[in-house]
Design a protein around this nucleic acid. Structure first.
Lengths: 238, 238
DNA sequence: TATAATTTTTAGATTCATCTAAATTATTAA
DNA sequence: TTAATAATTTAGATGAATCTAAAAATTATA
């Protein structure tokens, strides 16, 4: 198993869990090619090899689907990636936007024991610093309830569970507004004509566009655990 | 800079600092080939490429020498390797003989900031868990005073600075006698006819052959810092 | 010093992952 | 339904790092 193969499997797994939901309709060669920043013909080439190892299902001109074997390996990579991210943030004080590049290298280190020990050191976290769920050892991914910030009504309160854009510019922007994972917020007002949302964060008040707001996934500290908080300010009430 | 190139540079650097001394007579292709577990022709091929990048000096049928540029890169790899080893031992409780394989993967992760942060987390250690010196950021390697255990007279006391054999069997054997890095010992008696040495360790008393004793490098906790302890039981006195 | 043994180098092949450019198949729109 | 457009696949090439087997050079031995 080369680390290139690992990269393909991880990316395919991310496609399956896009938007927190299981997606079974697979992905196309060109979608995969774009995500991997590689030519479509390279994907085509590699997918044939993956098929020969029973890691994907594929037929000419069709969609690419992970097999159960491929999915398990892909989820394991996702697990490694997110545990390392948590380590970089918690133990080495890396900021949000510096983490991705390093974690992508660390995830390819081959040692089950290593990742288990790091996980233990961190106290078995369930989410990485971007708010993404960390799969457990048997490959189960717990996807918590959430809503994009853009759908929150005025007066609703919650905290940031995850962000969907991981570009440097976006993460810096989020940093400035103090909209980091775990930070709480309240919707102060909405201007639906202009598509602007005013927020109270732990930092102060900020205004952002609906388009950016789409990239923040919000949840409720009680409801996310499977309970029901019953508050009217809860983003899941009504 | 591929990680294969890094492996070559690191191994060449280890040749230069063999036995704690600077060795300037270079190494041959076949020596390098053996250490890297690769065919001599592969080395020959690669050395030409390294030369094209001014990382080594080499001419046909001659010895391989690192250039200053190559040496600096090699020492940096050594530095990374040893900092990771310290991390694996101190933070993740890996045992002595499990560390090598994992550190060899971690050392190729590309991020100066990462290794600097890990070093900081560990409190800027000067030696790795095998007792090998950790080069500093400018590539200086501090080689502490030491003597092989086999040269210690009866009554001398010291502690284990490093071990020279890193085979699984040897390290397990050392573990059993509690002759780990940093552990103290005293020479109780010597049977020079049979070549046996009796020791008091933190663990109890043990007997080992002169041949094994050659693989333990011993030092004095005071003298190693450049001072002079003055005790008669010091391994550097008389 | 000539010959044998060893070491080093060359030559050519292989595997992995990628590319470009051309050919093929699928999809969309007129 | 046919032509235009887009996506996918094939074919052939490239670069990295390796290998084996044969040739050349060096070193050791008789």
């Amino acid at each position: 198993m080369t680390s290139t193969v690992e990269k393909y499997l991880k990316t395919l797994t991310l496609f399956e869990f896009q938007d927190g939901n299981n997606r079974t309709d697979g992905c196309t060669s060109s979608e995969l090619a774009e995500r991997l920043a590689v030519a479509p013909s390279s994907v085509n080439n590699m997918v044939k090899k993956l098929q020969a190892q029973a890691l994907v299902d594929f037929e000419a001109y069709g969609k690419i689907h992970l097999t159960e074997k491929g999915r398990l390996l892909g989820v394991e990579l996702l697990r490694k990636n997110r545990i390392w991210k948590a380590f970089l943030a918690d133990y080495l004080n890396f900021s949000w936007h510096e983490i991705n590049e390093i974690a992508e290298q660390l995830e390819h280190v081959k040692s089950h024991k290593l990742i288990a020990r790091v996980e233990e050191l961190l106290g078995f976290p369930r989410f990485d610093p971007h708010g993404e769920p960390i799969p457990d050892k048997v490959g189960t991914i717990l996807v918590p309830l959430n809503k994009p910030l853009s759908e929150l009504a005025v007066g609703k309160e919650g905290y940031v569970l995850a962000v969907k854009d991981s570009s440097f510019d976006f993460l810096s922007f989020a940093d400035r507004m103090d909209l980091k994972i775990g930070k709480s917020l309240k919707v102060l007002s909405k201007n639906s004509y202009e598509g602007l949302i005013a927020l109270q964060t732990e930092n102060g008040t900020h205004t952002l566009t609906e388009k950016s707001a789409l990239n923040f996934l919000i949840t409720c500290p009680i409801c996310v655990k499977g309970k029901n908080c019953g508050k009217t300010s809860c983003i899941f009430s009504e």
